[in-house]
Design a protein around this nucleic acid. Sequence first.
DNA 1: CATGAATGAGCATTCATTCAT
DNA 2: GATGAATGAATGCTCATTCAT
Lengths: 197, 197, 197, 197
Amino acid sequence: MPETRPNGTDLRRAILDESRHLLVADGYDNLSMRKIARAVGCSATSIYLHFENKDALIHALIYEGMERLHEQLVAASDEAEPVARLNALAHAYVRFGLENPEYYQVMFQLHPQRMERYPVENYRRARRNLEIHAEALADGVMAGVFKVESADTGAHVLWTALHGLVSLLLAERVDVKVADEAFIEGAVRHALDGFRT
Amino acid sequence: MPETRPNGTDLRRAILDESRHLLVADGYDNLSMRKIARAVGCSATSIYLHFENKDALIHALIYEGMERLHEQLVAASDEAEPVARLNALAHAYVRFGLENPEYYQVMFQLHPQRMERYPVENYRRARRNLEIHAEALADGVMAGVFKVESADTGAHVLWTALHGLVSLLLAERVDVKVADEAFIEGAVRHALDGFRT
Amino acid sequence: MPETRPNGTDLRRAILDESRHLLVADGYDNLSMRKIARAVGCSATSIYLHFENKDALIHALIYEGMERLHEQLVAASDEAEPVARLNALAHAYVRFGLENPEYYQVMFQLHPQRMERYPVENYRRARRNLEIHAEALADGVMAGVFKVESADTGAHVLWTALHGLVSLLLAERVDVKVADEAFIEGAVRHALDGFRT
Amino acid sequence: MPETRPNGTDLRRAILDESRHLLVADGYDNLSMRKIARAVGCSATSIYLHFENKDALIHALIYEGMERLHEQLVAASDEAEPVARLNALAHAYVRFGLENPEYYQVMFQLHPQRMERYPVENYRRARRNLEIHAEALADGVMAGVFKVESADTGAHVLWTALHGLVSLLLAERVDVKVADEAFIEGAVRHALDGFRT
DNA sequence: CATGAATGAGCATTCATTCAT
DNA sequence: GATGAATGAATGCTCATTCAT
């Protein structure tokens, strides 16, 4: 019985996992219910027992992605000192994006019209990740090392910079004569410097 | 005689225009030759008289977008003073993105795998737009008002920040309790401040 | 419940049958998945549930044809005496071709470029049918009634003659003032006489 | 002016020539009006000035093929002695088929239903080629070296054998362990031996 | 004599989804 | 829970042909 899926294993779990793998391997546009089913080893119909439709599956994937990102951000924010913490957070965000390119696409690059039915819960998860940055900023303001109008706005501003960095790197649009590592380092520093007092 | 289009109107022009509109309405993945044809009021086959294939059509769109952006950047760079000039350029870039979401999407948010046949001319056009920013940075360095490792790298760093800003705004992911105008103003300033001496 | 086909009928069977009929009615080049679907009374998509693609459908047809031909050749080769046996085989081959023009076309008149993915199993089936003739020839050589360089080569030579006969008859290119039956009889005898000692 | 087609050159001629070349290069199924036009350097529409439709063009091609074959048969029949002459004719026929595979296909392997409008003149040309063989047979009968029921029927019988040989060779269906040359030699001799007294 | 523009019909194939079992 | 069979709609693209000029 370990032949296919181990008996009693959560099929929903398996579907999500395989979807993620296929996403990374083939990209969002090549993710089809049939392919997922084939990879999981169940029928396409069975997927519908666990997810209302493809959108719902994608949303679940996004949810998971947000969770993962959250975990990595939390892991990166053990530093007490606000400057070091924000720096760690920023790098963790960028690293997550570069290491999970297709995830990143689904989470942040899918277009709004597709997201009509985007579930509230996902919005919440997304905000939570922003708030981690906002907290670091706020702490820094209190400690006198950062200066921002509002922590929330500041977090968004930081996000736009980091998101732009990840997006262009993933799209292979950056062909600067500088090693990727160094470029990332520089861009992140640039994004953070603006907050320093 | 053509049904809808006035006699003698350039069909190629109409195709490009409708494609652009459909792009923002339905998203890239939902852009099909048939839908374009329907919108234009011609047969799907006719599109192939003006564009070798779908890719070529997209590339033409990108080309046009790059041209337009270029025009607006040039128009914005009449300022002599480097700081003011770079500021004007950054705002022009963001304005272009927000005012031409259709163009922006195909120009900067399409994925590299789709770009296999991406024509060299378009690469050149894209670089040209970066170089305008690089020049302003270089001028600023000479004038002692900017400090960057390299003008080219600096231009890329700036681009990532601006691109992130445009992308998230277009995706309606920024729900900060701040007027868009003010938010944009703040984010651009943030992006530029990092270069100041 | 299916409209036309009786409930429980094998759709795969129906597809193969209709394909065969359409083949002789419209020719190979005009055989399309849609036409087959229309003839069968199912959707084009359904065909893909039973055959991976058009090629696979054609190969299945060829496989069946080879099987049928084999059966008829076996049935015709019960004669012990080699001359009579080879004569029976030749006539069986010709009869098969004339009675199953649809099969014959795909089996022997398709072009090699189309056969790129020709499955090995079909090659085997084709050879098996040649070997039946080769055996009769070999037996005749042993019995001293036939004379051939090699049984295999002889079988191929015989095949070319019979294939030419069937092909031209099916193409209605033979307009000799002789009854078909008599013409066939003569042509087959002519093909066999060359082997006699 | 020798740039494109030399001024004053028969466009009809050029179309036929290019069609023939494309036929040989790409095969019948890939022969399209547009491709011919591109190869000739004229518009697709222009072809219709010289040929009613694609069928008519094909028929003209067949006509030319029959002429060519005729020329080669005539050239091969200068031998006075009937046996040698028929042998030369048979080899000339086979050679023509093998050297002009796509021509051969169009001339002899196109299916009858496509030939509904097959022009009478082409039938005549086809018959003329058969008659050359019939004459050799008749001469041989008079000379006492051949024995046939009727020269016409005999020519057809010979044709079926030769056509089968060419067809299977072109389809690469003959994988006998014998050099092609030798196989052909053997098959032709086999086809002719049946007529010897 | 020649053409550019245009078209409707057709192609193989893939997709998300449904439904009876 | 799970499935096999089925489907309508859609995709990019090619074709032979027509028509106004």
